[in-house]
Every structure is written in C-alpha cells, then in structure tokens.
Computed example of a mutant assay.
Amino acid sequence: MLELGRAILRLEKARRELLNIDPGDKEKLLAASRKVDRLVTEYYRLKYGFKTAGTAAGR
C-alpha cells in the first residue's frame, strides 16, 4: 500500500509539472506527457497487481 501512495505522489508531481509547462514548448510537453503516462501505467500495475507490461494491440 505504501508503494501505491508513493506512485500517487509521483504522479501528482508530474501532473503539476506538466500543467506548468509553456504550451509553445512542444518537446517539453511531450516529455512531461510521456512521464505522466508512464506513471499512470505504474499506478495501475501497483493497484491491480499486473506483473507484465503488455500492450492493448497484443490482446
């Protein structure tokens, strides 16, 4: 449960960083967006116990 809380905190921090990026800086936006995506995936793996990284296309 502690790891889930840490994942939420990291996700919130990354989300705040994303919101503070200048909309004209596309490269920074893309990098921050990818970080948020990665952290969301980590959160769901921790919450629901997924062991492997799969893709939707592989289903």
Rank of each mutant, 00 (worst) to 15 (best):
R16F: 12
R38V: 10
Y48F: 11
L18F: 05
L11C: 07
G49C: 05
D37L: 15
A56L: 15
R38T: 12
K51A: 12
T41M: 09
G58Y: 15
G58P: 10
K35P: 00
L4K: 07
K13D: 09
L18H: 01
D22M: 09
T55E: 11
D25S: 02
K47E: 00
K47N: 00
G58H: 15
L30W: 11
K13G: 06
F50T: 10
A14M: 08
A56G: 08
E3K: 06
E42S: 02
A7C: 14
A14V: 04
E17L: 04
L19V: 11
L39Q: 06
A31H: 10
Y48R: 00
N20R: 12
L39S: 03
L2N: 12
L39I: 06
Y44M: 08
T41A: 12
E17A: 06
L18S: 01
N20Q: 11
Y44T: 07
A56W: 13
D37I: 15
E27L: 14
R15W: 02
A7V: 08
R45K: 14
P23A: 02
R59I: 13
F50C: 08
Y48H: 07
L29Q: 08
G49D: 05
L18T: 03
R38W: 13
L9Q: 14
L2V: 12
L18C: 02
A53P: 00
K28C: 15
A57W: 13
